[in-house]
Amino acid sequence: MSDQNPLNGKVMLVTGAGGGIGRALALEAAKAGASVVVNDLGASLDGLSDASTAAEDVVSEIEKLGGKAVANGDNVAEPDGAAAMVRQATDTYGRLDAVINNAGILRDCFFHKMTYENFDAVVKVHLYGSFNTSRAAADVFRDQNSGSLIHMTSTSGLIGNLAQANYSAAKLGVAALSKSIALDLARWNVRSNCIAPFAWSRMTSSIKVDSPEQEERVNRMKEMVPEKIAPLALHLASDEGADISGQIFAVRNNEIFLMSQSRPVRSVHHGGDGWDIASVRNQAIPALKRSFVPLEVSGDVFCWDPV
Score class of each variant (00 low, 15 high):
S49M: 09
S49L: 03
S49F: 11
D50L: 06
D50C: 06
D50S: 11
A51M: 01
A51I: 00
A51H: 06
T53L: 05
T53F: 00
T53M: 05
A54N: 13
A54Y: 00
A54H: 03
A55V: 03
A55N: 09
E56F: 01
V58S: 02
V59E: 04
S60W: 04
E61C: 06
E61W: 07
E61A: 08
E61G: 06
I62W: 06
I62A: 04
I62D: 05
I62E: 04
I62K: 07
E63A: 03
E63K: 15
K64N: 12
K64D: 14
L65D: 11
G66P: 08
G67C: 09
G67N: 09
G67F: 10
G67W: 14
K68C: 12
K68E: 13
K68S: 15
K68F: 08
A69P: 07
A69T: 08
A69Q: 10
V70G: 02
V70K: 09
A71P: 00
A71S: 06
G73P: 04
G73W: 03
G73D: 08
D74N: 13
D74M: 09
N75L: 06
N75Q: 13
V76S: 12
V76T: 12
V76A: 11
V76H: 14
A77L: 04
E78R: 11
E78V: 12
P79S: 11
P79N: 12
D80I: 13
D80V: 13
G81P: 09
G81I: 05
A82C: 07
A82H: 11
A84M: 03
A84K: 14
A84G: 05
A84L: 02
A84F: 02
V86Y: 11
V86W: 08
V86H: 11
R87Q: 15
R87N: 15
Q88Y: 03
A89F: 06
A89N: 01
T90K: 01
T90M: 00
T92K: 04
T92R: 02
Y93V: 06
Y93K: 06
Y93S: 01
Y93T: 08
G94H: 03
R95C: 04
D97T: 14
A98N: 12
A98C: 15
I100W: 02
N101F: 01
N101A: 12
N102R: 01
N102T: 14
A103G: 12
A103I: 08
G104T: 09
G104L: 05
L106N: 05
L106S: 09
R107M: 11
D108V: 08
D108K: 01
D108P: 04
C109F: 08
C109W: 15
F110S: 08
F111R: 08
F111I: 14
F111E: 05
F111T: 11
F111S: 15
H112E: 14
H112W: 14
T115Y: 07
Y116S: 15
Y116V: 13
Y116W: 12
E117V: 07
N118Y: 09
N118R: 12
N118D: 15
N118A: 08
F119M: 12
F119G: 12
F119E: 04
F119K: 10
D120V: 05
D120Y: 15
D120R: 15
D120W: 12
A121Q: 02
V122W: 10
V122Y: 10
